[in-house]
């Protein structure tokens, strides 16, 4: 297996995640895009772990950790989104501009 294949797939996935983060208005969609980016990283980790034959399996173990952290992040993120929704009645990014210069 050429390492380039998973690396390129990961790069494309990451870029798509970037696009989603930058272009989507809905906060939940942005969260999904963040998940895409995290998965791109996971793919990289796994591929390089396999390539390097790491005795400690650090790539795969870290992938597991990232998955766990991503789950926690989604939980917290959704809680924040819900809180924002309750107080602002909106979860669109461009309507949450209280921090802007007047």
């Amino acid at each position: 297996m050429h390492v380039v294949y998973p690396a390129v797939v990961a790069a494309l996935l990451f870029s798509i995640g970037v696009y989603g983060v930058l272009a989507r208005r809905n906060t939940i969609l942005v969260l999904m895009s963040v998940e895409l980016m995290l998965n791109a990283v996971n793919l990289n980790l796994v591929a390089f772990d396999v390539w390097l034959r790491d005795m400690l399996h650090s790539g795969q173990v870290l992938t597991l950790f990232v998955i766990v952290i991503a789950a926690a992040e989604v939980g917290i993120g959704l809680a924040i989104v819900l809180a924002v929704f309750r107080t602002r009645k909106a979860i669109e990014f461009d309507r949450l501009r209280e921090l802007g210069e007047p």
Binding site: V8, S15, W51
Partner: peptide, 27 residues
């Protein structure tokens, strides 16, 4: 956003291809 994303993809892919052209993993 599209421009930035495409640029990101371009940079990443070119770097990755340049860096791991000959890397081969035995499964």
């Amino acid at each position: 956003a599209a421009v930035v994303a495409v640029a990101t993809a371009g940079v990443l892919v070119s770097v990755v291809v340049g860096g791991f052209q000959h890397a081969y993993a035995d499964l």
